[in-house]
Simulated scan of single mutants.
Amino acid sequence: MAFWRKKRESTDHHLGDVNGAETTDHYVGDFGSAEIKVTDRQGELPLVSITVSMTPEFACGLDFQNKRDELGLHHPKTLRALHLYAFTLGDLPDRRDEAIELLDWLVAALTDDPENRLPALNDLTRLLQDSGRLAVAEQRLREALSGWERLRGQDDPQTLQIAGVLAGVLIDLGRREEAEGLMRDTVARRARALGATHPETLTSMNILAGTLRGSPSRLAEAERMYEAILAGTDGINDLILLARHNLAAVLIHQGRHAEALERYRELVDIRARLHGDDHRLTWSSRRNLAVALNSLGHFADAEARLAQVLDAYRRLIGPRHAETLATQTSLAAMKANQGRTTEAVPLLRDAIEGYRGTHGPDHPRVRHLTHVLAQLGE
Rank of each mutant, 00 (worst) to 15 (best):
W4L: 02
R5G: 14
R8K: 12
G16I: 12
A21F: 14
D25M: 12
G29E: 12
D30P: 08
F31N: 14
G32R: 13
V38A: 08
R41M: 02
L47T: 03
V48D: 08
S49E: 13
T51S: 10
F58W: 10
C60A: 15
F64G: 05
F64C: 10
N66P: 00
H74L: 15
H75R: 11
A81P: 10
L82T: 06
H83A: 15
A86T: 03
A86R: 02
T88H: 11
G90V: 01
R96K: 14
R96I: 00
E98T: 06
A99G: 09
E101T: 14
L102C: 04
L103K: 10
D104K: 14
L106I: 08
V107D: 01
A108W: 05
A108E: 15
L118I: 07
P119H: 07
L124H: 04
L124A: 06
D130Y: 07
G132D: 08
R133S: 10
E138C: 00
L141R: 14
R142A: 05
A144M: 07
S146R: 10
W148K: 02
L151D: 01
L151H: 04
Q154D: 07
Q158D: 15
T159L: 01
V165G: 00
L166G: 05
D172N: 08
E177R: 04
A179Q: 04
M183S: 06
R189Y: 05
G195T: 06
A196I: 01
P199I: 02
T201I: 09
M205E: 06
L208A: 03
L208H: 04
L208W: 09
L212T: 03
L212F: 04
L212Q: 10
R213C: 11
S217E: 15
E221T: 08
E223N: 02
R224T: 07
Y226W: 05
Y226K: 06
G232L: 07
D234P: 02
I236P: 11
N237G: 14
L241W: 12
A243L: 12
A248C: 02
A249P: 00
V250Y: 02
L251N: 01
G255H: 03
H257R: 12
A258P: 02
E259F: 07
R263I: 09
I270S: 02
D277W: 11
H279W: 03
H279C: 06
L293H: 05
S295F: 07
G297Y: 12
H298I: 04
D311S: 11
L316A: 12
I317A: 00
G318E: 11
E323Y: 14
E323W: 12
Q328H: 10
Q328S: 14
T329I: 11
S330V: 10
A333S: 14
K335G: 00
A336I: 05
A344F: 09
A344K: 13
L348C: 13
D350Y: 06
E353F: 15
R356W: 08
G357Y: 09
P361C: 04
H363N: 15
V372Q: 15
V372E: 10
A374W: 03
A374Y: 03
Q375A: 07
L376Q: 03
L376I: 02
